[in-house]
Each structure stands twice: as structure tokens, then as C-alpha cells.
């Protein structure tokens, strides 16, 4: 009797959340799938026309989509791998005992706390071709032979954006990895030291293997984030063929071109790409968390 009442109460408490989930995720998602089979404008002014798989067939032949996919892959691989290595280095630094480690931990939280749009603007100003501090310092120290228009030269745009993303998101990576490092018992290192293992050997045989779960979580997290990158690119270079990623291309079709049909097809493609990573994610940690 009591149990039945508890179950009923639980349903009642979960219901509002479930309703919101259906309304903000389920329904829009269903719309996206539905409209991907139509030729329609986003204001739905003209009557939509059912076109079957035409949008998807177009997507497979669309060179702009391929370019956007390639830009996204480049951005993801470079930003995530640099962030992982840098984040691990910073996590190791903070993890070791020294005076002022609290200060370092506080300092790295600053990039994380800054809104992406603001950090993009800040760096846009620092990378300014004439008055930007990076050009000024670079020329003064002789690193740059002359001032560089980082955000106007197509071959430099994506690297510049990756640098900004690395600055903004490495702290998150470092904090996740630091949490993982703190789970490794000190006794292991003590035992290894007694056995005569060098710091370097300890890193490869103790730290890295035991950090793998945390590393995996952080990697998948950052990868999912990088795959949908939008803000930093939209603010720093706008819609530009050298930096147009999937998310940018998707919004361009939906909003700028008002093309609900083709835009929805791109959304479905992004969902499928994300889904592969979500499965990976669920497999690696979902089960353990739900225990």
C-alpha cells in the first residue's frame, strides 16, 4: 500500500520535468525530422511541399556541407588534442604540492568563467592586425617579422580560433583531470619510489593508466562540445568558408537562407554524428553512473 503510494507520488514529481522535456526536446526534434522531408521556408509562408529524401540526396552531393564537415573535424581534432595535453600538464602542475597552488587554480578558472562571446571579442581585439597587443609584442620581441592579419587570412583563421578555444576550455579539462588525479592513492607512488621507479616511469605506469577513465570522460565531453562549436567562430569570423563548421552552416541555411527543409536535413546529419559519440559515452560511463 505504502509502496504504491510512493510510486504514485514519484510519478507526480517527475511529471512536470517529463512534460518540459517532451515540449522543449521531443517536439522540436520531431519537427526537425518531419521538415527534413519537405521543401519549406522557415516562416512557413508558402505551402510546404513533400519531397521525400531529396534534401538528404542533396546533402550527400553538397560540396559546402563536405567543407563544413571537414572544418568541424579539423577544429575538433586540433582543439581537443591540444586541450587534453595542455589540460593534463596544468592538472599535474596543480596536483603537485607547492606554494601558491590555490592561486593557480583560481587563475585558470577565469577563462572558464568568461562568456564565450566575450572571450571571442577579447581575442579579436588582441589579434587586431594593427593595434592588437599580440602583433605589438610579437614584433617587439622579433617573433613576428611584421604585423599579421590573423583574422583576415583564410589559412590563419581556423588556427587563431582554435587558439582561442584552447584558452577558454583548457581549464575545464584541467579541472576534470585534476579530479581524476586526486583519486589515485599516494601509496602507489610511495611503493614505486621505494622500488626505484623514476618520476617519468611513475607517470607512464601509474598516473596514465589510472587516469584513463577520467581522461576518457573529459575527451568525449570536449569532443561533443567541439563538434557543435558555434559561438567563437560566429563572433570572430562570421560566416566564412575557411571557418564554416557544421553548426554555422546549419544556422546559415535555416535562418539566413530561411530553408527549413535542407536546414533540418543538416540537423539530422549532425544528430547522427553526435549519436555515435553519445553511444560511446553511455558505454564508457553511463552504466557506472546509473548503478
Amino acid at each position: 500500500m505504502l509502496i504504491q503510494r510512493q510510486v504514485r507520488l514519484a510519478w507526480l514529481l517527475v511529471l512536470p520535468t517529463l512534460l518540459v522535456v517532451v515540449f522543449v526536446a521531443g517536439y522540436p526534434l520531431a519537427q526537425v525530422f518531419y521538415w527534413s522531408f519537405f521543401k519549406a521556408d522557415i516562416a512557413l509562408v508558402d505551402p510546404p511541399e513533400l519531397v521525400g529524401f531529396e534534401n538528404y540526396l542533396f546533402l550527400l552531393r553538397d560540396p559546402d556541407f563536405r567543407e563544413a564537415l571537414w572544418n568541424t573535424v579539423k577544429f575538433t581534432i586540433f582543439s581537443v588534442s591540444i586541450e587534453t595535453v595542455l589540460g593534463l600538464a596544468i592538472a599535474l602542475i596543480i596536483h603537485s604540492n607547492f606554494k601558491g597552488r590555490g592561486l593557480v587554480r583560481t587563475a585558470i578558472l577565469i577563462p572558464w568563467a568568461i562568456p564565450t562571446v566575450v572571450s571571442a571579442k577579447m581575442w579579436q581585439w588582441m589579434l587586431n592586425d594593427v593595434y592588437g597587443v599580440i602583433n605589438v609584442i610579437g614584433v617587439k620581441l622579433g617573433i613576428l617579422s611584421q604585423k599579421v592579419a590573423f583574422l583576415a587570412r583564410p589559412e590563419l583563421m581556423l588556427p587563431a580560433i582554435i587558439a582561442v578555444d584552447v584558452w577558454k576550455t583548457t581549464p575545464f579539462m584541467a579541472l576534470l583531470l585534476l579530479a581524476g588525479l586526486q583519486l589515485i592513492p599516494d601509496e602507489l607512488y610511495e611503493a614505486a619510489s621505494i622500488d626505484g621507479a623514476t618520476r617519468w616511469q611513475q607517470f607512464w605506469t601509474i598516473t596514465l593508466p589510472l587516469l584513463t577513465p577520467a581522461l576518457l570522460v573529459a575527451l568525449i565531453f570536449r569532443t561533443l562540445d567541439a563538434l557543435r562549436v558555434f559561438d567563437v567562430i560566429y563572433v570572430m569570423t562570421g560566416v566564412n568558408s575557411a571557418t564554416r563548421t557544421l553548426a554555422i552552416y546549419n544556422r546559415q541555411n535555416l535562418i539566413d537562407f530561411q530553408d527549413l527543409g535542407y536546414g533540418s536535413a543538416i540537423s539530422v546529419a549532425i544528430l547522427i554524428i553526435t549519436f555515435v559519440f553519445v553511444i560511446l559515452y553511455m558505454r564508457s560511463i553511463g552504466r557506472e553512473a546509473l548503478r
Binding site: V14, T17, L18, V21, V24, A25, Y27, P28, L29, A30, Q31, V32, W35, I42, A43, L44, L224, L227, R228, F230, L246, A247, N250, R251, L254, I255, L260, G263, S264, S267, V268, I270, L271, T274, F277, V278, Y281, M282, G286, L290
Partner: peptide, 25 residues
């Protein structure tokens, strides 16, 4: 329910942009 909620956190916002636009209108 937890799986549904968890999968929502994985959602790329861009993937529902068009659907949400239509819904809000």
C-alpha cells in the same frame, strides 16, 4: 527517465534550432 535526461544533456542545441524556431512561432 535518467537515460532520457542524460541524453538531453548530450543534445547539440543546433540540432533543434529549426524545430524550436517553428514551435516558438
Amino acid at each position: 527517465v535518467l537515460y532520457i535526461v542524460l541524453s538531453m544533456t548530450m543534445f547539440p542545441q543546433i540540432a533543434v534550432l529549426g524545430g524550436f524556431f517553428v514551435l516558438l512561432r
